[in-house]
Structure formats: C-alpha cells, structure tokens
Design a protein around this nucleic acid. Structure first.
Length: 431
RNA sequence: GUGGUUGUGGUGAAGUGGUCAACACAGAGGAUUGUGGAUCCUCCAUUCGCGGGUUCGAACCCCGUCAGCCACCCCA
C-alpha cells in the first residue's frame, strides 16, 4: 500500500490485482479444511494427482472450448523460449490437465474406474469481486472409465458429504442433463432455429452465443432474454432414452442416500466438454458468486484429447468460496506446548538447550527472552502455551528449572538435565 | 470489458481550508531487581493511496491516476 519514505524499491509492495496472500491465521483455516478433504477423498477411494500449473495453451483451447469465456477472454498465455517455441497458458481449470496426464501416462490401463482428486491454484483474468479472484484455488475430482450412473451419484454425494462435514448446511444442489451426442444435436438445431426467429429481441451477447454456444443462452439473465428463454424449446423434451435413463438412475441413487436436489432445466455449464448430467451446488452464505461446486459428465473429452474413448465424470470446488462460506467457523487459536522463559545471558544458553530437547521430543516450544518476569509470563500467555519453563538466572545458579502449568498455575521445580526433562515429558498426559 | 462505491498508523476510525492530524484497540518501554490476561505513566502517522493544480496556507477544493470493495458479465 503505502511506501516508507525514502524507500523506492521500484515495484508496488502489493500483490497483483486479484491475488491474495494467505497469512498464518488464514493458512490455519486452510489446513483444517484440507485435512477433512483428504479424509473424505480417501473414504471414497479417490487418489491425489498433481499436474503442472501451466500447460500448452492448445490443450485448454481444445479441452475447455475455444468459444468459452474462460478460454476466449480469461486465459493467461505466455510464450516459451528458443527454437521449439510453444504458447503456454496458466491453467484456468484442471480437468484438461488431468485428462492430459491420464492420456500421457496411459492411466486407462489401470483397473477401472480410475478416480483422482486435485487441489491447487487456477488462473483466470477476471475483474475481482467477492468470491472471484485471478488466482484462486480449486479442489476437484475426476472419475474415469465408468459410465455407470453410480459413479455420478457417488461423486455428487462426496461433494455433499464433504461440505456437510465441514459444517455447511444451507446448500442447494441443482441437477440437469445437457444431453449426449445422440440427442443434443437435434435439440441444438431446434434451439438455434427458435433463437433465429427471436433474434430481434436477443441481447448482444446472446446473439453471438446463438452461433458459438447456443445452450448458454438458456443461462442468460438479461431481462430482455428472459421471456425468450422461458418459451424456448426445453432440453428435457429432447433427451434420448439413454440420457433420460441415466439421469433417472442418478436421481434414484441420490434419493437412496437422502441427498436433496432440485431439477433445473436451465442449468447449463460454461465449459464445452460436458455431456449428460451436470450439477451445481450453491451456498446462500455467499454473494453473487454463490456457486461452490460445479461439474458433470464429460464422456468425449478423453478421446478428444488423444486418449481412447473413455467416459468420465468430475467436479470442481472453489476453495476461497468455501472458506468464505465457512466464515462463521472459528479460525482456531494459536497454541503452543511450552514457552521457555529466560533472562539475557547464560540462562539463554540453557533455554536454547531445553527448547531443543523439547522439540527433538516432538513438542512445539519457543524461547522467550526478557528481563521482567511479568512480561515473560504475559508473552507465554499470548503464545497460548500450556507450560512455562522457568529458567532464569536463579535457576542457572542452582542448576534447576521450574515448570509451571499455565492453566492451573501449579509450579514444580526440577534439576536441569536431559533425563529429568524426558522423564517429566513421559509423565504428562495429553489433554 | 461495464457500472457503483471507498481510500487517514498494525487495526477500527474522528477530522470538510489555518497551531504538534482526535480517540480506542493492538504494540514497545517503565512504575514493579523473579511469576501471567489488572491499574497508572510514557512512546508509537515529519503525514492523510499516488501525481499534479488552486491557495499566503490543502487530509479537506479541482484534475488525473492507482488500488480496495460490491454488482453486471462469467464461473468455482
């Protein structure tokens, strides 16, 4: 923000627009969420995968879709160097990268289905607002080589359970099917024909969407487009037998485990690769950007990116939005096992020894140096220490040290030696 | 890319043209030469996002610029 007078480092001391530092207090919250994530993923048999944060730009253009906003106006690209100059792009999402890795390493040879999860930064050049940043973090899952509706339901359930376990309750799950290659073309044709009739009253963006990605018109919130959308041919009238049956099976599975959802005939995804069931989980604890999880089936993508025909299902979850929705939850206080209180001089040497013994024994501890004992104890309080180790000049002279339990204020006095400390550690019980 | 709104220390904020830029919290030091969230005292913004202009004089007025936030759009 402001620059100290006289110091001109030649750059702004501010993280780039739309990016944030995660400071220790926040990082604690992240770790808490990550722990739950890992546990849930393990229960559902998903394995972690980590892919590069940049890929060839062409991967995203082919995978996500040339006409999606994500690719056409939000992607960060940069050139390589030297002879084999290729254009790269910071990943705007991770499905394309995971599919690329799946194809590259021929993971389809592993026993099916192959189930992966990932977590990491994604990049989209957008105007920042609540729940939207240029660098944000996404947790996602991809399940390959299963066209069984059970896999769809399992993945959706996993998202719901994860959110519930984190304490999120006011959620709505929206479900739809965007149709498969058997039925979508017919629908698309009808829709375009209809939109052409109505094009006089369509908004400007919908006019271009009509040709590039007509299904997205269904999602348009422009007031002028509302009546048109309302009377548009309905997707579900065009579903083929397979699509209908698949969606119904997913619904049946969800019913069987009491996952509440709402069928939303207008739910459409902004990424081109989706086929069949799509879903979204929104939280009313958020502002305008209230979609927490979005995903669906993409049975064509693996083949499109050079792999064998492989059905797949996946979703992505915005970590920052999740943390935002979780905002009411406690951040967790800083805590410490032991604070070793010492005076300047020789007692610091002892303090260094003692803190090192404690750390080597697996305990977190800090040395605090000072002359005034009220300040030292106050400091120990602030650190949230369970025990204060009193090791001042008096103790150095007598070769002893004090241990004070800061919660019940009981203090004992012991000879200063490694063995004594270890014995004492063995004697304490963890709360 | 479009619109709205806000920019005063680590934080929350007073101050709307004229002495050292209130106050509160946090922080540092002391009162108290060894024992913790108390009390009292002291210190902590050569400067009001940044740059220019008007003026004898600007945190306050004007212009520009940058940033934050919110919304549109889009999406997680």
């Amino acid at each position: 923000m402001t620059q100290a007078a006289g110091k001109r480092p030649g750059f702004s001391v501010q993280s780039p627009k739309g990016t944030h530092d995660i400071l220790p207090a926040q990082a604690r919250r992240w770790r808490g969420v990550e722990r739950v994530v890992q546990a849930v993923m393990q229960r559902f048999g998903y394995e972690e995968i980590r892919t590069p944060i940049f890929e060839e730009a062409a991967l995203f253009i082919r995978g996500v879709g040339e006409h999606t906003d994500v690719v056409s106006k939000e992607i960060y690209t940069f050139g390589g160097k030297g002879a084999d100059h290729v254009n790269f792009a910071l990943r705007p999402e991770c499905t394309a990268g995971v599919v690329r890795a799946y194809v590259q390493h021929r993971l389809y040879r592993e026993p099916a289905p192959q189930k992966f999860w990932y977590m990491g930064p994604m990049f989209r050049y957008e105007r920042p607002q609540a729940g939207r940043q240029r660098q944000f973090h996404q947790l996602g899952v991809e399940c390959f080589a299963s066209d069984n509706p059970l896999s769809d339901a399992e993945a959706i359930l996993m998202a719901v359970d994860l959110l519930a376990e984190l304490g999120l309750t006011t959620l709505t799950v929206a479900l739809n099917s965007v149709g498969c290659p058997n039925c979508r073309p017919a629908y698309r044709l009808q829709l375009v024909r209809y939109l052409e009739e109505q094009q006089a009253s369509l908004c400007a963006t919908c006019l271009t969407r009509k040709d590039t990605n007509p299904l997205r018109v269904l999602d348009c919130k422009a007031p002028g487009c509302q009546p048109i959308v309302a009377c548009a041919p309905a997707l579900h009238d065009f579903w083929c037998v397979g699509c209908r049956a698949h969606l119904e099976a997913v619904m049946d599975y969800l019913d069987s485990v009491a996952v509440a959802y709402r069928l939303d005939p207008r739910l459409v995804r902004g990424l081109d690769y989706y086929t069949g069931p799509v879903f979204e989980i929104a939280s009313d604890a958020l502002g305008a950007q209230n979609t927490l999880v979005g995903g669906g089936r993409y049975d064509q993508l693996v083949e499109q990116l050079g792999g064998p025909p492989t059905p797949a299902f996946g979703w992505g979850l915005g970590m920052e939005r999740l943390l935002l929705a979780l905002d009411g939850a406690e951040a967790g206080e800083a805590s410490l096992f032991g604070a070793v209180l010492v005076n300047p001089g020789e007692s610091e040497r002892r303090g260094f020894q003692l803190v090192s013994w404690l750390r080597r024994a697996g305990r977190d501890a800090e040395v605090v140096t000072g002359r005034k004992w009220d300040k030292l104890f106050k400091h120990a309080d602030r650190l949230g220490a369970r025990f204060a180790f009193v090791l001042g000049e008096h103790e150095v002279e007598t070769s002893r040290f004090g241990i004070k339990n800061l919660s019940n204020r009981e203090q004992s006095d012991l000879p200063f030696s490694h063995e004594v400390v270890m014995a004492w550690l063995n004697g304490i019980t963890d709360a």
